[in-house]
Design a binder for these strands. Sequence first.
DNA 1: TTGAAAGCGCTAACAG
DNA 2: CTGTTAGCGCTTTCAA
Lengths: 358, 358
Amino acid sequence: LSTADVTKRRQRRNRPPAVTIADVAKAASVSTATVSNVINGVPRMSAETRERVLKVMDDLGYWPNPAARNLRAGRTDVVGLLVPELDRPYFGRFATAIADGVEARGRHLVLQRSGVGHERELAAAAFAQLRMYDAVIITVVGLDATELERLNFTTPVVLVGERPVPRAFDHVMMDNVGGSRLAVDHLVRAGSQRIAFLRGDSRGDTQGMVAQRHRGWLEAHEDHGLTADPGLVVPVETLDLEGGRRAVQQLARSAATFDGIFAVTDLVALGALRGLTELGMRVPDDVQVVGFDDIPEARYSSPALTTVDAGRDAIARAVLELLDARIREYAEGTKVADRAPPRRLVMPTRLLPRESTR
Amino acid sequence: LSTADVTKRRQRRNRPPAVTIADVAKAASVSTATVSNVINGVPRMSAETRERVLKVMDDLGYWPNPAARNLRAGRTDVVGLLVPELDRPYFGRFATAIADGVEARGRHLVLQRSGVGHERELAAAAFAQLRMYDAVIITVVGLDATELERLNFTTPVVLVGERPVPRAFDHVMMDNVGGSRLAVDHLVRAGSQRIAFLRGDSRGDTQGMVAQRHRGWLEAHEDHGLTADPGLVVPVETLDLEGGRRAVQQLARSAATFDGIFAVTDLVALGALRGLTELGMRVPDDVQVVGFDDIPEARYSSPALTTVDAGRDAIARAVLELLDARIREYAEGTKVADRAPPRRLVMPTRLLPRESTR
DNA sequence: TTGAAAGCGCTAACAG
DNA sequence: CTGTTAGCGCTTTCAA
């Protein structure tokens, strides 16, 4: 038993018996370099050799090891996308738009969940796996500038979200305040005077999405010379259907009068629609309802939900463009000093009047 | 200029200037092994050394390289999940349940889309990146036994789906035929006689989900001694809300009489509900409607949708258990011959009567 | 057209 | 308690 054999044994601990390039090379009587060239479609090579190698790869069931390939080549052709939750229609649609764009450019998308809560979000962004992608898109909910910069990414990062973030990152935002004003303005013009705001918990965060949409609600009241009644601000436990349903029940119990509802998201609005039905209130006759996000479901409820298109698809397009430019820059080895300055884009919003308002 | 330096230069092509363990080791005046031990929490080490290394890591902004780590250690603590689409509520919920379980066991989940169509699904399953995860969950739509086996996976794979697949894989299925019978049986008992089936396109596939749910529709008719009218089978272009809405319109145009609808999925059923409302038909008075899947949205529509719980959460739990056992087996280096035989589970279904039926 | 060999960044065995 | 070292599987340069 030679020393080499023993060494080999102990290095190989419980590893699955994967077929390697070396195995293929030996079986095809060529060098590993040649096998590599076949895999990567390097042209300078006799057709005969290529065929032989391909046949051996097939016979042996060879598949490349992505870790080794990435370690050596320094790229993966993979883009990572971090979203708060995997079961929110908004992010489902957004991820699909991003995946389409990424795949159209010959790369792959992988999706990871950051989860709710600051700790979990930070942990997800710090997750090592993200560092092996050619670029990362992070939808920021609660992370702040310092935290993001300390992560010290070495590949392009594009941020999506509403919080102030380091200017070191490209950043695409939606206009939460403007969109909310649009929504509430529409309610007022359609005759509502006492407009409840179904808001989520923002735990003291004054910069996040919930806080900004709340601000839009306030500003729209000012625009119309109305007094925003704090008693009409209803907390929503979770930003989902059940949260909206419960919020409406609570609102009804509070004995406050209201003739309009602006919900922080479409999901909450759809839950509210259901809650109103259960309470025997008619929409839009007794109460008008507006949501935010324009998820696909909003068009198909009865009544169809009036909502705000926050520019989701435009955001996706913008993100893809920014990403493309950065990936190219990095691939070309542009020095840090010569890189294009980070861009910050705010996407416009648009009101979509449907049946839940008059 | 030494040879080593030149070599280094050319190997480093356009690589981002990442901080490595070697940089940390040098700055902290320890060996790379010690740094590695700090990173991995190996206890035997003076607190003083640990502190110094941690401080240097922090100062330098060091983050481990996942490719190198995986290549060397042979594991990633990541589980991959392949789903057909990223924006279907069913898969959103399923992915969330899987992510919860995976994270509870100290691992991470990454989600990838396989896309619609056989070619895309195969390409997604063959995607090299999947091979670096500790295990992979594949929701199979159109792949068959041979294709899956040729992929020659070296890590555990658990299959979710309705198609016959190689017995070499653990496989969790839902009872599509049984669930559909339940749905149609419920419609008949509640008084429907002419029950339309809103089915998707299965392109001649006789094994897939659509075909199986169609079979349940047929069998339930037999059970009740009713004749299933082929004229009541309506194609659905896409398995989404719009598909359901259009299918109902087409059904109405066809002048066929119908007093019940069984939709192949909840999304299609919800679209149908909307379509019926637009046509001025009342649910459940004029037409009763049943869906399949129990997506969260089904509880909150007006009327709330009667549907079949296909055991989504039970499937997720079963998948997680199978996965756990396999990962342990692989980690312990159990020889192929000694591995537990693959398991095939069929999860039971359950009818959830709500407002769209009497 | 092909091969030899270096080394990507890290872990783990073992020695000191 | 800490260091030396081999090598995971692959790509790439350069030489033949």
